[in-house]
Design a protein around this nucleic acid. Structure first.
Length: 235
DNA sequence: GACCAGGCACATC
DNA sequence: GATGTGCATGGT
């Protein structure tokens, strides 16, 4: 096992299976992925509940025909609500134009092509698109988020400031491309990341277990090494 | 009251 | 290509 696999094993043993994504339908995953951009999940849940409690608006048709004003009002609790309304609208327009608003039709598109198409929608960046590919369509695409970078740069596995693609290649080159593995791994990183300050202030169990080091940083942003050769996996 | 949260597009250098 | 900024609410 390589270090990336070892760390997965450690996280899984500590936190157990996460059963992600926390949503009742593939469509809800997509809307949730947009709503969670730069936002605490607790706030996203409030917005999602607002949508669900209003004649089940987490339905492609009903959301498509909802006014922007009403959508803004309902998703307000999760912040950035005007720009997120635009982004959801951009996605819905794409979704109905290309796939008649049907997830099953969209699911027939090959991964690479679907990724390109989704990335062409204004407001959907790499993390959002990869979350959709992995958690809506079960494609083995590794999602890179801030937690991933913070945790692995803290562990001195790689430099926080590497590009999205470099981070993604690191994981995709060192893991078997099995969507269940990618699903669980990303979920575990988020769970660990949310607990991270508590763990890393005093001790980080991953760090102690694999690197025989006490974690003396984190909390406010993991200091980075000046010399990249000090990373375990420099890319 | 300060800081942060599962980003992204756009402006500027 | 790197860096800075606006977008906004709610929890700690």
């Amino acid at each position: 096992m390589n270090i990336i696999e070892e760390i997965f094993k450690a996280l899984f043993e500590k936190y157990g299976p996460q059963y992600w994504w926390p949503a009742d339908s593939p469509f809800e995953v997509i809307i949730g992925a947009i709503l969670t951009q730069g936002t605490n999940w607790n706030n996203v849940e409030k917005a999602i509940n607002n949508l669900k409690n209003n004649i089940d608006l987490l339905n492609p048709e009903r959301l498509y025909y909802l006014s922007d004003e009403k959508l803004e009002e309902l998703i307000k609790p999760c912040g950035f609500y005007k720009i997120k309304t635009k982004r959801i609208r951009n996605f819905l327009n794409f979704f109905f134009k290309n796939f008649d608003g049907e997830i099953n039709k969209m699911a027939k598109t090959p991964t690479y092509l679907l990724r390109e198409k989704l990335l062409s929608i204004s407001g959907l960046g790499k993390e959002t698109v990869d979350s959709i590919l992995l958690y809506t369509f079960n494609r083995p695409v590794f999602v890179i988020d801030k937690y991933t970078r913070k945790i692995f740069s803290c562990l001195r596995v790689a430099d926080f400031s590497l590009s999205y693609d470099e981070w993604q290649n690191l994981f995709q080159n060192l893991l078997f491309p099995i969507y269940q593995l990618f699903n669980e791994y990303h979920a575990l990183l988020v769970v660990h990341g949310k607990n991270r300050c508590r763990f890393c202030k005093g001790t980080c169990f991953i760090k102690e277990r694999f690197f025989s080091e006490k974690a003396q940083f984190c909390h406010k942003g993991c200091p980075l090494l000046e010399n990249k050769s000090n990373y375990y996996l420099a890319t």
